[in-house]
Design a protein around this nucleic acid. Sequence first.
DNA 1: AAGTCCTGGTTTTTT
DNA 2: ACCAGGACTT
Length: 798
Amino acid sequence: MSSFSDDDAFEAAAAPQPSLSQQAMQARGAPYLDGLNVAQREAVETLDGPVLMLAGAGTGKTKALTCRIAHLLGTGRARPNEILAVTFTNKAAREMKSRVAALTGHVEGMPWLGTFHAICVKLLRRHAELVGLKSNFTILDTDDQLRLLKQLIAASNIDDKRWPARMLAGIIDGWKNKAWTPAQVPVGEASAFDGKGVALYSAYQQRLKDLNACDFGDLLLHMVTIFQTHEDVLAQYQRWFRYILVDEYQDTNVAQYLWLRLLAQGHKNICCVGDDDQSIYGWRGAEVGNILRFEKDFPGAHVVRLEQNYRSTGHILGAAAGVIAANKGRLGKTLFTEGEDGDQVRLIGHWDGEEEARWIGEEIESMQRGTRGNAALPLNAMAILVRASHQMRAFEDRFLTIGLPYRVIGGPRFYERMEIRDAMAYFRLAVSHDDDLAFERIVNTPKRGLGDKAVQTIQTTARSNGVSLVEGARLAVEGGLIKGKGGKALAELVQRLDRWHRQLREEADTHVEMAEMILDESGYTGFWQNDKTPEAPGRLENLKELVKALENFENLQGFLEHVSLIMDNAQEEEDDKVTIMTLHAAKGLEFPAVFLPGWEDGLFPSQRSMDESGLKGLEEERRLAYVGITRAEKLCTISFAANRRVYGQWQSQMPSRFIDELPSEHVEVLTPPGLYGGGYGAAGMGAEANPASMGMTSNLHQKAADANVYNSPGWRRLQARSQQRPVSQPLESRTMVIDMTATSSFTTGDRVFHQKFGYGEVMEIEGDKLVIEFDKAGEKKVVAKFVVSAAAADDVPF
DNA sequence: AAGTCCTGGTTTTTT
DNA sequence: ACCAGGACTT
């Protein structure tokens, strides 16, 4: 159990207000106010009444936010535990904490600085009984949630093919984001999920209550419910939180908005920071409307605009401004810089996605050498920002081929990996035998000969006796209901669970030793050791890391409490590598050089987004474009391809409509926009690469013509290629892709290139497996079920 | 109960 | 093209 020692002074008398002269004195000598610009200073020093800080990209909003906190503390306006400061991500919370600490010199404190979810957990643990939970409730992850929903769907005789659990999870999440309890779902939603959505939602909430659990959405929803139905509880917190600060306000959903509004009604000292132009999470419930409506919601609000940008050059800001200007209903900001104009944003069209990757690879290498009249840049200074994660593949393939170090951000997070979840389920079960979901997860992992039927027997036994699944399993074993190998294994499992539980209580061993023992005795470690698939060693590595992470906690329970809210994965930053990530993942980051590939209609803006959300969707895509461009400090390169393979099919592409919105004075056109394979329907042979045939009226065409780009060698090469090569064939390929089932194509001594491990040499051939010694690590690996391309060592494929 | 084949779906992602 | 989950087979 977490202790509440940091806020036990909750009901203590209010802090005495310092006199004005005292404030002025303290403020004068306040080092944290140095170096703020006029707007930032206004945002920091306006302490009475609601404040909306409209902070454009790169305008120093975190600085303003942290200085405001320092100022509140420095002037004695509030004590650290009277300030509520909420962020969306753990990363942002960490950053704010450390910056406040650096400004004020107090390392700890600020117990109420955290993510919405972390703060809600803290609150909900104190008031859980008001929504029918116990204080030690567990927080379900998405897997548990889905397993539960699947059971409910199966129980209500719905065709789970047409109505999958994932869809229901999405619907329920959406409702929770809107702060609708089952009773509050409006009648207009009655047809959701084959008309049974609301009933299933209600059943789901009941199941959660029975399990003493809640999901992520509940953390907020329950707190909103409590605040709405228990005036005394609300009043207590309204009194306590003298100042409220909110980061990324444009990303708040309805539930978060209600939560904030309820809390802010006490002192009305709420300061929201956000940028309506950077709202890119509408698809997961964020309401830009919240920030647009701020002045209505909080009468007397003071709006401060941070418009001086410290990140990007003039041309980059100009290009970004041109794109975002096409959106309607903005609050409006005009970013400016006192720095240089710098290089124009570059725009280049390519024949296909592979050529785009090839060109960007070369460009990165040349920037690394410092050509183009710019200083040499380390790879860490460069990023490729894509719309959809499948675009990353082309770059990975290419960079592996030329040996360019890269780092991919995103993908499955550490705590979402299968092996980590399995291990956690064992830990959860050892701590509490009541955790039915954890039991279901691991009962047959590793394989114990317990199939659907055995699991069903356990479930019915448990239900008819009104006990948990572990107890049900015990009864089933004792009653001889499960026979043979499975029965034996189950008996053993139950026995071990008992012993682990006892040992945890007795604290005979440290929790780290216990964790290792649990993984060992359960057979889970052995399960992966015996697995010969190439990912098995990585999984074992992850398990080791998990055990190592345990060392930072007092006990297993404490670890489990924290982990459910921290889905971060730490990235090693010290290596010099190019970063590849999605535009969404790039929000809040900055890089000297940014590449924005794949600017093609349908891909970016995404067709699906436009289909599903129409103009609203398009505007969000446009904000994404804005976010992308404004990540760049010095160099920004936008590109598109005329042809792209989509789900294995070649498709001719239209340049993104956003390209036409780029103001030409801020753009350097390397090849003309409008390059695409002869228009729609003509994908295939000899597509025209002549701007005259494209019917595009981009303001950039003339510019391209003026620059004589159409006569440039690059353009001629494109034209020549377009005439030679059918679209359905890869451009030029010297790598031969060989399926490992055809090992006969190899002989020992062959040089090979592997997508994951790089270059190597075939040492032995064993049936359908190759034993390859890879150059890089000098280690031998048995490779099976992998695609290997043949490549001569001296002939690096281009 | 476990291994193999087939089908459908494929934007973005935090907590 | 590629993956995951479910139906189907052993």
